[in-house]
Structures are given as structure tokens and as C-alpha cells.
Design a protein around this nucleic acid. Structure first.
Length: 597
RNA sequence: GGACCCGUAGCCUAGCAGGAUAGGGCGACAGCCUUCUAAGCUGUAGACCGGGGGUUCGAAUCCCUCCGGGUCCGCCA
């Protein structure tokens, strides 16, 4: 908040909109700094030092709120904040807003976040989990930033990948001896081991048949997929990840959404049906103008046999998300909190988004770009602009990739990692907290294992490849979920011991120790972190921040006594504010704050 | 052939609308539990920010180029 205040202040003073407020390398130089004098001096061909002195003189005439002193170190302008006034305002805001601290005002905009959308033929492995964790974190972030968020999972129940396991079930029987998604995943490997060109033809015919609602296989296939999706969602639920709406490809087909989209596409000048050449009979999008140098600048949307390609379906789905189609889906309840599309259901208010975020691997950047451009070609400029592909790199094993067909995911499913993590966390709690009941220790282990997996994925920038290593994934020390939870639990322990013996209305908010002061400043930045993480759709800003607060708090904790100190009431207020910020930030990351561990 | 992403200490990573001494973590070494939880804290060693050019008062950050790694450019899904 103070950074923003200073930025606005310097902007007003200089009439510039490129002001950046930094933190000086050494706290003795000031709390915040600004290097405008360099820029202005360059443009005006003047001495930067002189410019800085002039600016400071102007600032002295109407000093910004909360600033006590302004000095210069060479051409750098340094601000010293009025500690007491600042702490009163910053901590006062945190303590009074409590759980609402860091929640930004409503934007009135609806955003759809599509994530997970894994084929319904296998369990989630750590690669799929990255998608879900990223998507869920971004959804929480946007909610905190004032958006109405609708979280969607697209179920590709008509894809060839599912048809392959479906064929496997017809062939080898539906006899699961383990969690259903694991059963299907292994069946899928088996099918691929026996796959021949003739079989592929047979599976294609089966795939076609599934699309026909009057075929007996249609209903059977849907029932199997539903069972698989339930299994997949139960794994995600352990991580605190859920969906508002499941959208099924079969429902989209049968509701005529593809047909309507293709009719619209056919009206565009850049989308034509070829009548000669190798693509005769195909509906083709001409991308030569937007993507020069492509080997093949013609993107097929509808094949000569009349079936739509993947990209064409993606365009239709995107159109539905923005509410651009006149035909609509119907819905029913899937479970307590999740709805699902169902053509026998009833109308509900899904779709109609102002912004769409698709969490999809970066290898699909090109088709996602085609989707975005096609909206523009159809005249939906605004929707094209508001179509965002949140791309991320894959999770791999140290010397292999995760492959559904080859089964390299076995042993690395989300369920496997969760249970290993839980065992490790349980061992750690049991060692340290023998006085707790089994239930209490179990609950802590649940939170720590789920939180660790989330944290260890969320802390990487999306464009970084992640190599899965057990030590890393289940790390309980350092920059990790337990580290942050521990700092939070320490706050709670102090507050518990003080048991409401302080009243923050009566605090003076005077802090003299640098470790107190650094914490106050960092806590005040939380809403800015939420705002920029949401704007950039990058949850790792939050893990970074929460680690930084924990680092500062633990250092404070180690050096300074709270209860029984001569600044007890003020320190209790600081601990309370730290607790609040850590808890709120953990919730944004989908991690439940622990009061003890 | 073209396009996109990544390259920061032994390992992982932040910083990349240019700003003062490049943050964290793991690992290594040396310390700290009769005071609010040691899943913690403090200190030491470790970085020519992939190489080379350029722009600038100032470059990890911007531009060019090269090298290494990954991905994409199918009537596949």
C-alpha cells in the first residue's frame, strides 16, 4: 500500500507514469527509494544530482502521507517512513479486516478457469497434478482479486483415448481390483500392448458408435467415464481442488454446439471449403497471413469425412465459454458442490464469461493461438482479447517423460505421492508430538502432505520444467509448506498463550527493532502481491511471498521475546497480523492453515 | 526451414515494465534448545547471471548473434 502511495505521489509530482518504487540495499539508507532523477536528467540533459535535489525540495513542500523524511544518496531519492503512523495504519487494516485482508473489491467480471481436463482413461500423475494445482491456485487468486470465478473441467468422453480403454473393457471385462482410474490406466497400457492396425480400425468404429445416443454403447461408455471421473476427482479433493462445472464433449455434440459453431465459421472469409488440392472437401482456416513461414498455413477444421478436428472443437468450446452461441447446454447436480452438463437436465447460468483462462500445457500453444485468432476472424475482438492460454511446462521423471501408453506414470500418480507424503508427514508429527491423539496427528499429516504437494508444484514459474524427485516433492524443510505452516503455528501458539490479554485498539504500534519493522513493511505488501499475482496469473508470487514472511517471522521469533517483553502488546499485535496474513495467503494457495503441528 | 519456452553457486529456484552489495532453499562446514513448538535460528564457504557483441550514467533484466536443452508447425488426438 505504501509503495502504491509513493508511486502515485511521485507520478503526480513529475507527471510521469513510469515511476518505480524500490527498496534501498541497506535499511539505513531509507525504507523506499526512487530513481526518477536519472531518467529526468537524461531527458533534460541535466545533472541527475541537481534534479534529485530539486525534486526533494518540491517534496518537502507537500510531503506524502506517512513519510517522515526524504533524503538523497547521490541521485537516488530515499524515503523514510513514519514508523508509528505507518504501522498503525498497516496493522490496523490487517487486524480489522482479518480474513478479508488481501481480498480486493469486486470487479463485476466473470472469469472461467478451465483446468485439469485430463482424458478419462487413467489416474492423474504428477504432470496432470501440476495442471490442477496451477489452475486451482489461479482460480483462488482471481476470486481474491474480486472476480466471479467459474471453474470448469472438460471431459473428453468421446475421444479415441477413452475409446481404447472402452474397447479394453469390452474385451477383457470390467473387473477393477483397485481404484477405478488406476484400473483403467493399466487397462490402457494393456490395450496398447495388443494394438494392431486392424484393431485400430475396430476402435475407430467403436468411437464413432459411442457418439450415437441411440447406440447401447453410448450409455455404457458414459457410465464408465463417470466412474473414472469420480475417481479422478476424489484424488483432487484430497488436495482441496474442486470444480463448479463439468462439461462433457458428448453433451456439446448432442446439444448442437459444434454444428452452430461450424456454421458461423463457414461464414468467415478466411475459412473456406477447399474444392481442389490435397485438402479437397475440408473446411480450412487460412492462417498464412497471421502465421507466415508455417510449413502448412492451412488449418483443417472439418475433415473431408465431415468430422471436426480437435482445434475446431476447442473453438466451439471457447465460444460456449463466452456465451456466443444461441444453443445452450443443460445441467444437473454431480455432487454437493459440483454441477455437470447433462442434456436431460435443466438450464443454469454457466458460461457467459468476460474472460477465459485455459490451463493447458505449453505444447498446445499453437492450437490455443488458433482458437484466439479464430474468435477475432469471426468478429469477436473483445473475446479474442480476453482469451488467455495459461501455458506450463511438463513434469518429467529424471530420465523419462510420463507416458500413458508406456505406463511410466505407475508409481507416480497423485494418489501414490499423496500416500507417501502422508506417511512421511505422519512420521514427523509422531516423532515430535507424541502427546497428540492419533486423530490430531492424522489431521496434521493430511494437511501437510496435501499442502506440500501443492506448494512444491506452485512455487515454480509455469514455464519451468519440473523434474520429479521424491526428496524434493516431499521436502519438509526450508522453502516448503511445513516451513510456512510452522511459522503460522508459532504465531498461533503465542496468541493462545496470551489468550486475548491484549487489545489492539490500545496498541501504540511503536516498533524499534529492525526485525519488527521489516515484518510490518512486508505484511503491508500482501494486497499488492495478490493483485499482481492475479493480473499475471502466476501463483508462485504467493509462495515466494509467504516464504519471505515466514523467514522474517522466524528470525523475529528467534531474536525477540513476545510475551513478557517490554513491548508485549505491540508485539502481540504484530504476531496476530502475521498470523492473519500467513493464513490468508495459505488459503489462496489452497492450503489449510494449521494452528498447531 | 520457421515459431515459442528454458539456461542464475555442486543441485533446485526468485529477480527480467534497467537502478545502489543478484535473494531463497537443498547439500557442505561451524555454532544455538532450564524462556512463546529446533519441521526453527545464527554464521562460513560457494555465482565472471550459457558465450560474444551492442544500447545506456547504469544490463541477470533491452537489442543482435552464437551455443546447449525442450516444445510446436498432421484431414493424428
Amino acid at each position: 500500500m505504501i509503495k502504491q502511495l509513493l508511486q502515485d505521489y511521485v507520478s503526480d509530482l513529475t507527471g510521469r507514469n513510469d515511476i518505480v518504487i524500490d527498496v534501498p540495499p541497506n535499511p539505513e539508507m531509507g525504507d523506499y527509494s526512487c530513481a526518477v532523477a536519472f531518467q529526468m536528467a537524461k531527458e533534460q540533459r541535466r545533472n541527475p544530482l541537481e534534479v534529485a535535489r530539486e525534486l526533494i525540495a518540491a517534496m518537502e513542500r507537500s510531503r506524502p502521507r506517512l513519510v517522515e523524511r526524504i533524503t538523497n544518496a547521490g541521485p537516488y531519492i530515499n524515503f523514510f517512513v513514519d514508523g508509528e503512523a505507518f504501522a498503525r495504519e498497516a496493522l490496523g487494516t490487517i487486524l480489522s479486516q482479518d480474513r478479508g485482508y488481501g481480498t480486493l473489491p469486486p470487479t463485476g467480471k466473470r472469469v472461467i478457469v478451465e483446468h485439469t481436463s485430463v482424458n478419462p482413461n487413467k489416474p492423474l500423475h504428477m504432470g496432470g497434478a501440476r495442471n490442477s494445482i496451477l489452475g486451482d491456485s489461479v482460480a483462488r487468486l482471481l476470486r481474491a482479486a474480486g472476480y466471479e470465478v467459474e471453474v470448469e473441467n472438460y471431459i473428453d468422453d468421446l475421444g479415441i483415448q477413452f475409446a481404447e480403454v472402452f474397447w479394453g473393457i469390452l474385451q477383457f471385462g470390467d473387473t477393477p481390483e483397485e481404484k477405478y482410474d488406476h484400473f483403467l490406466g493399466k487397462l490402457y497400457i494393456r490395450v496398447h500392448e495388443t494394438l494392431t492396425p486392424e484393431l485400430e480400425g475396430e476402435i475407430k468404429r467403436l468411437n464413432k458408435e459411442m457418439e450415437d445416443p441411440s447406440s447401447p454403447h453410448s450409455a455404457m461408455a458414459r457410465a464408465i467415464v463417470e466412474r473414472c471421473v469420480m475417481a479422478q476427482l476424489s484424488s483432487l479433493k484430497t488436495l482441496g481442488i474442486g470444480f463448479d462445472i463439468l462439461v462433457w464433449e458428448s453433451d456439446i455434440v448432442h446439444a448442437g454446439l459444434f454444428d452452430e459453431t461450424f456454421e458461423l465459421l463457414g461464414e468467415s472469409e478466411d475459412i473456406v471449403t477447399e474444392d481442389d488440392g490435397p485438402l479437397t472437401g475440408c473446411l480450412v482456416m487460412k492462417l498464412g497471413r497471421v502465421f507466415p513461414n508455417m510449413t502448412n498455413p492451412d488449418k483443417v477444421l472439418i475433415r473431408s469425412d465431415g468430422t471436426p478436428t480437435y482445434t475446431a472443437k476447442d473453438i466451439a468450446l471457447q465460444m460456449w465459454k463466452f456465451g456466443l452461441l444461441s444453443r445452450t447446454l443443460l445441467y444437473r447436480t454431480w455432487d454437493g458442490t459440483t454441477m455437470t452438463s447433462d442434456n436431460d437436465g435443466e438450464p443454469m447460468d454457466f458460461g457467459n464469461a468476460d474472460m477465459v483462462i485455459n490451463v493447458i500445457g505449453s505444447e498446445q500453444s499453437y492450437p490455443q493461438e488458433v482458437v484466439k485468432r479464430s474468435l477475432k476472424l469471426l468478429g469477436f475482438d473483445e473475446q479474442s482479447e480476453q482469451s488467455h492460454h495459461l501455458a506450463y511446462e511438463f513434469v518429467t521423471l529424471p530420465d523419462d517423460s510420463f507416458s500413458g501408453r508406456r505406463g511410466t506414470w505407475i508409481g507416480y500418480t497423485l494418489d501414490d505421492v499423496l500416500s507417501a507424503g502422508r506417511a512421511k508427514a505422519l512420521e514427523a508429527v509422531t516423532q515430535r508430538r507424541s502427546e497428540l491423539t492419533d486423530d490430531e496427528r492424522g489431521r496434521i499429516a493430511d494437511v501437510i502432505s496435501a499442502g506440500s504437494i501443492r506448494y512444491n508444484i506452485a512455487r515454480y514459474a509455469p514455464e519451468k520444467k519440473i523434474v520429479f524427485r521424491w526428496d524434493d516433492a516431499l521436502n519438509l524443510e526450508g522453502d516448503s509448506c511445513p516451513y510456512v505452516e510452522y511459522a503460522h503455528a508459532r504465531c498461533c501458539a503465542i496468541l493462545r498463550k496470551a489468550a486475548g490479554t491484549y487489545d489492539h485498539a490500545a496498541c501504540t504500534f511503536s516498533y524499534t527493532h529492525p526485525k519488527e519493522w521489516e515484518l510490518v513493511k512486508a505484511l503491508s505488501e500482501y494486497p499488492d502481491v495478490i493483485a499482481s499475482a492475479a493480473a499475471d496469473k502466476r501463483p508462485h508470487y504467493v509462495t515466494k511471498y509467504v516464504n519471505d514472511i515466514s523467514l522474517k517471522f522466524n528470525s523475529f521469533y528467534n531474536d525477540l521475546l513476545v510475551i513478557g517483553s517490554d513491548n508485549e502488546a505491540n508485539r502481540l499485535a504484530l504476531v496476530d497480523a502475521t498470523r492473519t496474513v500467513l493464513a490468508n495467503a495459505l488459503r489462496v494457495l489452497g492450503i489449510e492453515p494449521l494452528e498447531e503441528m
